[in-house]
Simulated scan of single mutants.
Amino acid sequence: MSINIMGASGRGETEQWDVAPLPQVMIEPLVRTALLEDLGRAGDLTTNAIVPANHRGRTALVARQPGVVAGMDVARLAFQLVDPEIRVDIRKPDGSRIRPGDVIAMVEGNSRAMLMAERTALNFLCHMSGIASSTAAVVDAIGDARARVVCTRKTMPGLRIVQKYAVRVGGGSNHRFGLDDAVLIKDNHVAIAGGVAQAVRRARAGVGHLVKIELEVDTLEQLDEALELKVDAILLDNMSVEAMAEAVRRVDGRAVTEASGRITPQTAPAVAKTGVDLISIGWLTHSVGVLDIGLDHAPS
């Protein structure tokens, strides 16, 4: 995907989103598991055979594409779990807009350790930056519209916390983190319950008073029923832009409105103009491309 780093919002390449970093205790198990998967039973055979044990080096994390950086703390942890003495000097923190050739960070220390951690660090950094960049592309596309761009639960197993963090870094927001966050009544729930009213009634009886209830609707007729039931949020699933606009008019602020269904940076502006509160996009996490970043040897 092509990323416009000076989009409709007019944000510059150096602007950063104010997003709280993930605590190390949350990301360390992911990074440690990835390193162990890569090192296997014998470690890095290539590096151990070629690079002297005491050799020290200097490398640079360099952008190959324009986009938004996300995952620097994760990448740094990959290097430092292999060797705590490796120094990572971050030049472009998470949220920074970058261009090809930009140095994102300088890495210095034991050369063996750097090469052992290289692929794990880049796997996280490129993937998370790809998510942040794609999110930013949609956010830029809708400009000053009131809608917020949100991700879904369509995440890669085990990576949800870092993927949803990357969405926030790109200027988006998060939908549910899991099934225990809120109630989202979908078509299968309605079918098993025997109707929308029955499903909503059972949900209200089965959860606490602080839990929000969202109902998925496909038609304006279902929307009218949802409004009578006074749910907290309504998911407008795969509706046309015209139907969405009518739905927002009928809701008239009585519930949060969420648009969903194969929304792209090209179609998002029209969706945002309907006045919906949220635009949810699954591909931001389930099938987004990476942002190309490399680790280059930097002679002293």
Results as ranks from 00 to 15, higher is better:
S2N: 11
M6H: 14
S9N: 13
Q16V: 14
Q16K: 04
L22I: 00
M26Y: 06
M26N: 06
R32M: 01
T33R: 15
T33A: 14
L35R: 15
G43V: 01
N48A: 03
H55I: 08
R58C: 10
A60I: 15
A63Y: 05
A63C: 07
V68S: 07
V69C: 09
D73I: 03
A75Y: 11
L77N: 06
F79V: 04
V82Q: 14
D94R: 03
S96E: 09
R97A: 09
I98A: 00
P100V: 06
I104W: 04
V107D: 02
E108W: 11
G109I: 06
G109A: 08
N110F: 12
N110I: 00
N110L: 13
N110P: 04
S111I: 14
A113K: 03
L122H: 13
N123K: 13
F124Q: 06
C126I: 08
H127E: 14
S133H: 13
S134L: 10
T135P: 00
T135L: 00
A136L: 10
A137T: 14
A137H: 11
V139R: 05
D140A: 09
I142Q: 01
G143Q: 03
A145P: 07
A147C: 08
V150I: 10
C151K: 05
T152F: 00
T152K: 00
K154L: 06
T155D: 08
M156T: 15
P157H: 11
G158C: 06
G158Y: 01
R160L: 01
I161V: 07
V162Y: 08
Q163G: 12
K164P: 15
Y165K: 03
V167Y: 05
G172K: 11
H175V: 11
G178T: 09
V183L: 13
K186R: 14
D187G: 04
D187I: 04
D187N: 08
D187E: 12
A191F: 01
A191E: 05
I192Q: 01
V196Q: 02
Q198I: 15
Q198R: 15
V200R: 13
R202G: 02
R202C: 04
R204E: 01
V207H: 05
L215E: 05
E216L: 07
T219F: 14
L220C: 09
L220F: 14
L227T: 08
E228Y: 03
K230N: 13
V231D: 09
D232L: 02
I234P: 08
M239F: 15
A243F: 09
E246N: 12
R250C: 10
R250L: 10
D252R: 12
G253T: 04
A255H: 08
T257D: 02
E258N: 05
P265C: 07
P269C: 07
P269F: 10
A270W: 01
K273H: 11
T274Y: 11
T274C: 12
V276M: 07
V276F: 09
V276L: 09
I279K: 04
I279L: 03
S280Q: 04
T285Y: 01
H286N: 15
V288N: 01
V288H: 00
L291V: 05
D292P: 14
I293L: 09
L295I: 13
L295V: 14
L295R: 14
